[in-house]
Every structure is written in C-alpha cells, then in structure tokens.
Amino acid sequence: MSWDCGGGDCRASWQHFQHDADVGLMGHGATLDEAFEQTALALTALITDPAGVRPLVERPIHCEAPDMELLLVDWLNALIYEMATKNMLFSRFRCHITDHCLAASAWGEEVDVMRHAPAVEVKGATYTCLAVRQEAGGWVASCVVDV
C-alpha cells in the first residue's frame, strides 16, 4: 500500500492512501474526537479543497454503534448522507465521542459547482482497511471509501 499526504503537507493530520479503484482516508489526532474530525476532513478533500468550503451552515450529526470502528463508518456515512441530501460540502467538524456514541457538528456550505469543481461523489464508507486505534502519538482512524 502506498501513501499520499493530503494537501502535499506530510505534517497534516489527515492522509489519503491508495486502494485499487478507490481511496483510503486516515485521520490522526491527539484525541479520538480529533482523529474522527480529521478523517472527515480527508473525506471532503477527496471531493474538493477544504480551504475553499466556507463553514457557513452548521449541521448536527448523531451516531451510535456497537463498536468504535462501526462508529467511524457511521460518522462518515452520515456526512455522505448530509452532503447528498442537502447538497452540501463541509470543512469544519467538531466531534464528541462517549461510549460508542458520537455527537458532532459539521459546518459547511451548499455546493457551488463552478467554485468547488467537485472531483468525485462518494458513494459510501466501507469496512476495508477499517481501523480505529490508539498509538504512541495519539489516535488514528482509517477506512476506504467507495467513489
């Protein structure tokens, strides 16, 4: 598996990694909450440059899952659902995880095709390369998304 750092900056706390037909997302953070937030940012970066998405509208998101890995998939799928049904892109995230429950907010704006030039539409988060783990430097969350 080869790795690709988002935004060309290897110090960034999210990354894309390669999967045959699709792309993997990875978020790093000092806390679990932060790792989930960064994975969401990696999701947006697949579609457009997050820096070009204005955090104008807040959308609340709540997820509950039997384990932390399914919670990550649920979180990303909830964002994909919000993007698809509200025609939005998000660039700022705040997560709060307790006992496999996620209370989050995502801030963004409606898609502007000319300005955002969305590269791809994400179909769903998968269980491939799915992991949520604590490492020496903090937390890492990853999975492949189908595009």
Binding site: L70, N77, I80
Partner: peptide, 28 residues
C-alpha cells in the same frame, strides 16, 4: 448507495445471530 450502506451494517451486526463467521467484515 444508501441500501448498500445500511444492509452492509445490518449484516455485520446480524452475522453472529445467524452463526456466520466473517473473515472480513466487508463480506457481510
């Protein structure tokens, strides 16, 4: 996409109930 997402999750969670051992969760 949504049907795939929802049933993948449901099948992962229900696998135990049906006595199915999944070598890979994606095989839900």
């Amino acid at each position: 996409h949504q049907i795939g997402t929802e049933f993948l999750r449901r099948m992962v969670i229900d696998a135990d109930q049906y006595g199915i051992v999944l070598p890979d969760r994606e095989l839900a």
